[in-house]
């Protein structure tokens, strides 16, 4: 299901929060978009890459007890929507925190973690297509840790 090209294509965004910005309306997008949905054709050729900080604030969160396939070893895990300081919002896990330490409004910062491992690769069993390919990407920790 997740071939190497698919992981590779998104790596700059998943590994280090590379987004983009519409220079017409100044809206910041993450992940980067081909065109600005607000300016549409006017934004063609006017989308500029922008490096986001990976810092943000918890908009809402849950503790997942019935995990997505491949996330069994982490269960229960905290899943949150985080509003990045530059504006865009993302969904990912908050790690290294007690289940009761998270609140709406908590400050978080990014860490790199393993998101998914296809079966056949390693010691963790994995899921998916048997290629063993590993997907890395951002998760968050409460600010003040890393």
């Amino acid at each position: 299901m997740v071939g190497p090209s698919r992981i590779w294509r998104e790596a700059p965004s998943r590994y280090r929060f590379l987004g983009n910005r519409c220079t017409v309306c100044e809206e910041v997008y993450f992940p980067p978009r081909q065109i600005c949905p607000k300016c549409r054709r006017a934004s063609i050729g006017r989308m500029e890459p922008i490096q986001l900080s990976g810092n943000g604030e918890v908009v809402t969160y849950t503790v997942v007890y019935d995990p997505a396939v491949g996330h069994e070893l982490l269960t229960p895990y905290i899943l949150a929507i985080v509003k990045l300081d530059e504006g865009p919002r993302v969904t990912s896990q908050i790690v290294g925190a007690g289940l009761s330490e998270i609140m709406i409004g908590s400050r978080v910062k990014t860490v790199l973690r393993k998101l998914r491992e296809e079966k056949g690769g390693g010691e963790d069993g994995g899921s998916g297509d048997g290629s063993g390919v590993i997907t890395y990407g951002y998760k968050f920790v409460l600010d003040g840790q890393s």
């Binding site: 997942v64 997505a68 969904t91 990912s92």
Partner: peptide, 10 residues
């Protein structure tokens, strides 16, 4: 898939 599921969302 790319921006929710892979991060562990259900």
């Amino acid at each position: 898939y790319e921006w929710e599921s892979i991060f562990g969302a259900t």
